[in-house]
Design a protein around this nucleic acid. Structure first.
Lengths: 232, 232
DNA sequence: CGGTCTAACTGGTCAGACCAGTCAGGCCCA
DNA sequence: TGGGCCTGACTGGTCTGACCAGTTAGACCG
């Protein structure tokens, strides 16, 4: 069924390309299955199979009676970084395991990103860090988290290893959960340290010091885990 | 479409349960779509949608004219270890990226597995290594690779971090490809070294030396990459 | 102007037909 | 007797058309 020459498969790829190239944008509704099938010159049953594949993998969302919508992209999700959605029926992982995985993945990603970030990206990271500090002051926790996510996403986007990027996307949901959960119990001293750690990561990346970038990122995540009472 | 109350979806879950409980075993062929649909009391089109979902996520494999087979489970795939299949439509990753990812993942997995392998498992690894040597002598490359895969799979099965195990499964196909590809161009000296490296990994794991285990595994994979002309 | 109803739209499922690929068994020939 | 070829029965892949359930917009009435 998943043979690459199969009709639904090739149509799924076409639709994926339309999503990736922006022909179909996040939130947008695609034509009805009847119209879209006609447009591709295939039966509606085959189009449904193509759509189902895309939906299983999280690229689209179909609602009965309403239509099919393009799912919102994730920050840092550019090009062929994976759209590997987890099988939603399985249990989630322990927070310890997620943190341990974060330290491993993000440390290496930071190392591989060193020397590849543009000045513009580094400035965006600095701005995101400052935003974190500003939002923390006025207790805007949502914006604080979003700035944090943006900071990390920029680093991931520069990683030279597309496979690691894909793996990171696979676990993105669990990862961002660990970025959110310690926030309500973060004391002001820790947030100040966290922001300082961000700045040390930026400094290492700015200096194109791959090993320092890794070390600072691992340290940062390890300290975050300690806020959740863990020592991975 | 992926609403949990939908017919194909609930059937997909039933089939998943049958796979997880062992009613359907790895490699086993399920009944024909016509028979299976009748068995579930649904149309064949709906069963196809259920099967497509499972296949997109890597649990089954359907071959035209032959039938649908349960995918082989991976060693260590127990309970809620992820069924996170890679996105099969995207380009494959460069061999360099795969090797780099292997070094990162398998090094850490070896570290986390140290101290958790039973004597029986260590003996199986030693036997697999000896099998590699024996098969290499008689140029049975397939069996050589299978013994190599078994060696690595045992280590993965002992890893304490289920998320890392799941990530490893996600990239297993590409990983095993890098274990296969250098084989035809491996010279006897390198194979002897490879087997010696396996033994050093076993020794480190036997001594419950986590850092040595990581180091030896990284070294082993790095040397394998060199056989493919890469230096990750 | 707001509420209700209806028609046209949407996706979900079913049944049947036909096509292409696979495989096993039977038959024929060397 | 063994190997090769052919055929029929099986498999999945795709199409068509019908019908059902959910949604929405427009028209009509109070």
């Amino acid at each position: 069924m998943l043979n690459k020459t199969l009709l639904p498969q090739s149509v799924a790829r076409e639709i994926q390309t339309m999503i990736q190239t922006g022909t179909l944008k996040a939130g947008e509704k695609i034509p009805s299955q009847r119209d879209f099938a006609q447009k591709f010159g295939i039966s509606r049953a085959s189009l449904r199979e193509a759509l189902l594949t895309l939906e299983t993998l999280g690229l689209i969302k179909t609602e009965a009676g309403r239509g099919t919508y393009i799912s919102a992209p994730s920050a840092g999700n550019e090009g062929h970084s994976g759209h590997m959605a987890p099988w939603r029926y399985s249990d989630s992982y322990s927070v310890f395991d997620v943190f341990q995985t974060r330290i491993l993945l993000e440390g290496e990603i930071a190392r591989l990103s060193a020397g590849r970030l543009t000045q513009l990206q580094l400035e965006k990271m600095e701005r995101a860090t400052q935003t974190m500090a500003d939002c923390w002051e006025r207790q805007d926790l949502l914006a604080n988290v979003e700035a944090d996510l943006e900071f990390h996403a920029i680093i991931v986007s520069a990683c030279s290893n597309s496979m690691l990027k894909a793996l990171y996307q696979t676990v993105r949901d669990q990862v961002t959960e660990t970025q959110r959960q310690p926030i309500p119990i973060t004391d002001p001293k820790r947030m100040g340290e966290s922001i300082a750690e961000h700045r040390r990561i930026i400094a290492a990346l700015s200096a194109n010091d791959a090993n320092a970038a890794r070390r600072e990122m691992e340290n940062h995540i390890r300290n975050t885990a300690r806020c959740a009472g863990l020592s991975p």
